[in-house]
């Protein structure tokens, strides 16, 4: 029962946030909606006893929305709303087709009985203590190569972003403060 209440409240917040991301006129409210959605997902992970995933969800995803706020404040300004004129011709038609297709897939899955209510934290379920240890054991034994390669990939991405943004063709003059 408690689980159902948490799910319904969380789902309403998550969906409301997602709608706000698209509908809001002011991009700051879009970022806030995204924050609400990502935070509610964290709540769902807690209900499913995945405490580690929930904490990471909030630190990484909900924390990263902060950067979006900065982008909005720095690039769009405080008192102007986003320019909503469309640059791609007929993009509403393409989007409508995509949305209908997505809804059709979701509807087919729902009517095909692929969705079922999976009770999360049942009494006497596997104790959540040791999630971090179990995760670390898998990560550093069976999947250590994938883990290290992913880390390398992220490092390359960061270095590439700096290289693209910082190094130009023309020589940097003395005292040129970029």
């Amino acid at each position: 029962m408690v689980e159902l209440i948490v799910f319904v409240v969380g789902a309403v917040v998550a969906l409301g946030g997602a709608v706000a991301v698209v509908v809001a006129r002011n991009p700051v409210y879009s970022a806030l909606g995204l924050l609400a959605t990502l935070f509610s997902l964290g709540v769902f992970y807690v209900v499913h006893l995945a405490h580690m995933v929930a904490a990471v969800q909030i630190i990484v995803y909900a924390g990263a929305v902060m950067t979006l706020f900065l982008f909005v404040i720095m690039m769009i300004g405080v008192d102007r709303s986003e320019d909503t004129s469309e640059t791609i011709p007929r993009h509403r038609i393409y989007l409508a087709v995509l949305a209908v297709g997505l809804l059709a897939v979701a509807g087919a899955a729902a009517t095909g009985g692929r969705f079922s209510w999976v009770p999360a934290a049942v009494e006497g379920a596997e104790t959540p203590n040791g999630t971090v240890q179990a995760l670390a054991e898998r990560l550093f034994t069976d999947w250590v190569l994938a883990f290290e390669v992913t880390a390398l990939l992220l490092t390359i991405a960061a270095a590439g972003a700096i290289a693209l943004a910082y190094f130009r063709r023309e020589p940097v003059t003395e005292g040129d403060d970029r």
């Binding site: 909030i58 924390g63 902060m66 040791g130």
Partner: peptide, 26 residues
């Protein structure tokens, strides 16, 4: 059992209050 991560998560949430207060004051 993720206590330290919880502390980091909550302290990153606390920053939102300051940023939103600063932005919304106009």
């Amino acid at each position: 059992n993720v206590g330290l991560l919880f502390i980091l998560a909550m302290s990153s949430m606390a920053v939102y209050a300051v940023v939103l207060a600063g932005w919304s004051s106009g």
